[in-house]
Design a protein around this nucleic acid. Structure first.
Lengths: 133, 133
DNA sequence: CTTGACTTGCGAAGAGTTATCATTTACTGT
DNA sequence: ACAGTAAATGATAACTCTTCGCAAGTCAAG
């Protein structure tokens, strides 16, 4: 299969990069739609899948119901808010985590992912408020 | 809210413990159905949710995938096969991973999860075979 | 018993994602 | 420039997993 850089594909990639965040397919759909009103949600899904297959973007399969996509390719970990599901990058190096390969049950290891869960500052405030009531 | 230990609830918990694995709701449903043919899938979902709320079991969420439930409560990490989605425990201690709390963007940290991805021995064989063709 | 809180089973509905397919687009070689 | 062809698109249906709504059932306490 040969990959063409279509307008849609490029737009999706550009918007994802622009956001610098961790967007879901439909968030990205909403953004791209502003420039291409006729684009289909299926196209967004398709292209995100393809772009992550060829390693141009990263697919995050971390907790939460929706997949999220990230234009940042370098290894980094994430912290995510258990209240609002916001995700942010953590800058601790991947090398800080040593993998004991002997314990890997015979698996060939392809990656590792460290996920820290917590409550973001914004939600901390919300919770504090709602407890006052 | 007061939690009753109903027959269904108990059965679900027992089967999950018995399996020692990381079952999905419908896998568990199939097992429990052998003893309680009339149990509803919704009951399984409901009770897994409740049991994990009260920390009697653990809920593993990998987005875009089925949730899996685990009766093992002690801190441990997981390795999961990117081919067949099998999940196994890793026995490296949680304490091996140091969290740099200063970098947490103001989050109050509630947990961490290290997930190693790889290809399990079984799938390695499958792949080797299919490449020979 | 009767009340009230909790639970169940069932089916329907919801969310997120993927598949299908006719049509359109863009590259290839001539 | 043009036909041939492989890939991409938009629209929508289908699919999978999960949750919801509700009537009926269960249980403990008064």
């Amino acid at each position: 299969m040969q990959l063409r850089m279509t307008n849609q594909r490029e737009m999706i990639l550009r918007e994802l990069k622009k956001s610098k965040g961790h967007l879901t397919a439909d968030e990205l759909y909403e953004r791209v739609k502003k420039f291409m009103p006729r684009i289909s949600l299926a196209t967004v899904y398709r292209n995100l899948e393809i772009l992550s297959d060829v390693n141009m973007i990263n697919k995050l399969e971390i907790s939460g119901r929706q997949k999220r996509f990230d234009s940042e390719l370098e290894d980094h970990d994430h912290i995510y808010c258990v209240e609002c599901h916001r995700i942010e990058n953590l800058d601790i190096g991947a090398n800080q985590v040593e993998l004991p390969v002997e314990d890997a049950h015979g698996y060939t290891i392809t990656g590792r992912r460290l996920e820290v869960t917590g409550v973001c500052p914004r939600c901390q405030k919300k919770i504090a408020k709602s407890k006052k009531k």
